[in-house]
């Protein structure tokens, strides 16, 4: 009897330890979701996240492709940022696989240098996985001197797959949107938390 009870206690403790481990694992999962979510979006184009990186399309892909797609450009500036920010050309017509350079223009109204950073996404969301950005001002922070006017390039191409995927074959217009936010100065914001993570 006593032996059985002792065994019971051990089993009880063991169960509790396992359960605490589950709690820790689920808590860890919440934090791990920060990088995991970002990776998931980048890999799948989820939520309109375009692909980034070097050109991987084949030269022949563009040739003779029946389709053309219009890429339109949209710009937003957070009201905390005293900038003007606009696409230079409102839209371009591109052939699949063709590498295209376009420009946005930004102007700093303030009398001090200001750093901004841009978020971006592509709509329709389902087209994002076929929208590849090779070069973009949004990959880094941008600092504008007082009154400065800059032209900021974007290089991209649309994957010919867009026309083959039955889910996206009807897409004729793609919109690329940016939103510029101010980057808070170090003094105000001590650490960039998730980078530290």
């Amino acid at each position: 009897m006593l032996g059985a009870q002792a065994r019971g206690i051990n089993r009880t403790k063991l169960t509790a330890v396992i359960l605490f481990a589950v709690v820790a694992a689920m808590g860890g999962l919440a934090f791990a979701s920060v990088p995991l979510y970002r990776m998931f979006c980048q890999v799948t184009g989820f939520a309109g996240t375009p692909r980034t990186g070097a050109y991987v399309g084949t030269a022949s892909a563009g040739a003779g492709a029946a389709g053309e797609v219009t890429v339109r450009f949209d710009a937003n500036v957070n009201s905390q940022l005293p900038w003007q920010f606009q696409p230079v050309e409102r839209q371009v017509v591109v052939r699949p696989g063709e590498e295209v350079l376009i420009h946005y223009r930004a102007h700093n109204f303030a009398d001090k240098p200001i750093t901004g950073t841009a978020t971006f996404n592509v709509t329709p969301f389902k087209a994002a996985q076929y929208f590849n950005k090779i070069e973009c001002f949004c990959f880094t922070e941008q600092t504008l001197k007082p009154g400065e006017d800059v032209s900021m390039p974007v290089v991209f191409y649309v994957d010919p797959q867009l026309f083959e995927d039955p889910n996206t074959a009807e897409v004729r217009k793609i919109t690329l949107s940016y939103t510029f936010f101010p980057v808070e100065t170090q003094a105000q914001q001590p650490s960039a938390g998730e980078k530290a993570l």
């Binding site: 709690v23 808590g27 936010f181």
Partner: peptide, 28 residues
């Protein structure tokens, strides 16, 4: 479920008080 809420709340708390940017698009 609750540990996930706890994690999410902790990130909200640090976003609010310690300058992290888990949920802030301006900080990525």
């Amino acid at each position: 479920a609750l540990p996930v809420l706890a994690g999410a709340l902790t990130m909200l708390l640090t976003d609010r008080n310690f300058g992290t940017h888990f949920y802030d698009p301006a900080g990525g």
